[in-house]
Computed example of a mutant assay.
Amino acid sequence: MTKKTTKAPAKKTAAKAAPAPAPKAPAAESTKVARTQLVQLVADKTGLTRKQSEEAVGAMLDVIVTAIKGGQSVGLPGLGTLSVKETAARTGVRPGTTEKIQIPAGKKVSFKVASTLKGNL
């Protein structure tokens, strides 16, 4: 026969409890406006339904992306201008190995802030 042993319950100490973790900031105080939040803001501002706002925002983004892919600049009054810029071929260094590599020419999307917005920041 084996003898069963029971552990005594742990004693509670009068040590200070760790402070409760700070609650996460609500989405409204976030520094990024997500697409769903943008749709909701458009719906609130225009009086459109959420579905109509979703279609309008989606259509606008599709037009902007199509224009940029086509090499066109897109001016957004009061916000700025999105444009495509050519990048030159250049020599770079591979991190970790310090090996010199050739980076090919390419394209990148550039954004120039409107002077009215820049002045109001």
Rank of each mutant, 00 (worst) to 15 (best):
L121E: 00
S83N: 01
V39D: 06
V74E: 09
G80W: 00
M1E: 11
K16W: 00
T91K: 14
G80T: 06
Q37S: 03
A105L: 04
V63K: 13
V42N: 08
T91R: 13
V63P: 11
S73M: 02
P19C: 02
L38D: 01
K85Q: 12
K4W: 05
K16A: 09
P23S: 03
R90Y: 09
A27P: 02
A114F: 01
S115Y: 07
I64G: 02
V33Q: 04
A18D: 14
A15H: 01
I101K: 02
A8Y: 07
T98P: 02
K107G: 05
E99H: 00
Q102P: 03
A34T: 14
A88I: 11
Q102R: 05
P77L: 12
A88W: 00
P77I: 11
T49S: 15
A25S: 13
V84G: 01
A28T: 12
A18W: 03
T5G: 08
T2N: 11
L48A: 08
P21C: 04
E55H: 08
V57C: 09
Q52F: 05
K12N: 07
P95N: 11
K4V: 13
G96L: 06
A20E: 15
G70W: 02
T5W: 10
G96F: 08
V74D: 09
K51V: 06
T87V: 03
L121Y: 02
G71S: 06
R94C: 05
